[in-house]
């Protein structure tokens, strides 16, 4: 009993530390990628290859004066921060990082909670994050922030639907909502589900970009029109928290889920010894994260009206069609 609690706390601590540390260092990765994509250098002054830049940024953000705008709704203003950060962290609770192993006669699963409805949790958390955005915009009593948050709400409402239907195909094939089960079924069949569900993967990618507010769906930030959107009235580390949660933690979490769904989770040739599954999982996840960054620094932004248009008129019918066809195929061949 006590050991279980300690193991659970240990897992949570590891995931939290790794998640937040990764989030901070992804800023460095993103700036390097962005720089090189535009034939620039990226951060290169602080430390070797600019590796200490996130620390410097963190110190800068923490020591900055942070003000609360006049007319702001103070409790909601602070609550929005929590509402933005917590769901992004909770996504990590259902990500399986590897197969279960035994240590001191005790079976340990490298996943915080292996619930039966893991994927539902992911979708729920991915979209509960929208409240952070909406209330941040509303509570700061600023029109720019508010317009940004309303745009984000519109995007989430449309893409959540598409996301659900896109993933349904994979769930039909795997026959389970649990993340561990989905990976196990891929390992059993010896095939990654992207082979069966390429359309669903593309739809998922679109939804991932929309939910994490990445280009081409970053209308809630839209630097050119809205300054920086919903978090414009926040200062200091509070300002840094929103991109950390939305751009980094969310992207890593959803990429990991995409790896679970479409790329066979931790499966891969056993070439790194006992750590092999974890390394494969991280490699796949960061390949997807890199792809997201690559898209971010390549594409322009859609117009606000186009984004909901695409979701409802193009992506949703395709997703429905995909589900129907998959259901027929699964029914006939199993």
């Amino acid at each position: 009993m006590i050991i279980d609690v300690i193991i659970a706390l240990g897992k949570i601590a590891v995931v939290l530390l790794v998640g937040l540390g990764l989030g901070a260092y992804l800023t460095w990765v993103e700036r390097k990628v962005a720089g090189h994509i535009q034939a620039r250098m990226g951060p290169s002054v602080v430390g070797p290859f600019g590796l200490f830049q996130p620390i410097a940024d963190g110190v800068k953000l923490l020591t900055k004066e942070s003000i609360i705008p006049r007319g702001a709704d103070v409790p909601v203003y602070y609550l929005a921060l929590i509402l933005a950060l917590v769901p992004s962290l909770l996504i990590f609770s259902v990500i399986p990082f590897g197969p279960s192993f035994t240590i001191f006669g005790k079976e340990i699963k490298p996943i915080i909670s292996d619930v039966n409805i893991g994927l539902l949790i992911v979708f729920a958390m991915g979209s509960i994050a929208v409240y952070g955005t909406i209330f941040a915009g509303w509570a700061s009593n600023s029109k720019y922030a508010f317009i940004g948050s309303l745009r984000k709400a519109a995007v989430i409402v449309s893409y959540e639907v598409v996301l659900g239907f896109a993933v349904l195909g994979v769930i039909l094939i795997a026959g389970s909502l649990s993340t561990v089960e989905i990976v196990n079924s891929q390992i059993e069949k010896g095939i990654w589900y992207i082979v069966y569900q390429p359309v669903a993967f593309i739809l998922y990618l679109f939804c991932m970009l929309a939910e994490s507010g990445r280009v081409p769906f970053d209308i809630q930030e839209a630097e050119a029109e809205l300054v920086t959107g919903y978090n414009v009235e926040y200062g200091g580390m509070r300002f840094g928290l929103f991109p950390l949660a939305e751009w980094y933690l969310n992207v890593v979490g959803l990429s990991a889920i995409a790896v679970v769904l479409f790329f066979g989770g931790w499966s891969g040739p056993n070439i790194f010894g006992p750590l092999s599954p974890y390394i494969w999982f991280l490699v796949k996840t960061f390949a997807l994260v890199f792809f997201t960054l690559w898209l971010h620094w390549t594409l322009p932004r859609f117009q606000a009206k186009d984004i909901t248009d695409i979701a409802w008129k193009i992506l949703l019918p395709i997703a429905l069609l995909n589900v129907v066809v998959t259901a027929f195929v699964v029914y006939l061949f199993s």
Partner: peptide, 25 residues
């Protein structure tokens, strides 16, 4: 678990978002 998940997705997200959209304006 299923009811809990549906509660989160349908109520906490889909429905309340619409309320929030209307009320915040």
């Amino acid at each position: 678990e299923l009811i809990a998940g549906l509660q989160l997705i349908i109520y906490a997200v889909a429905i309340v978002v619409f309320y929030v959209l209307v009320i915040t304006t």
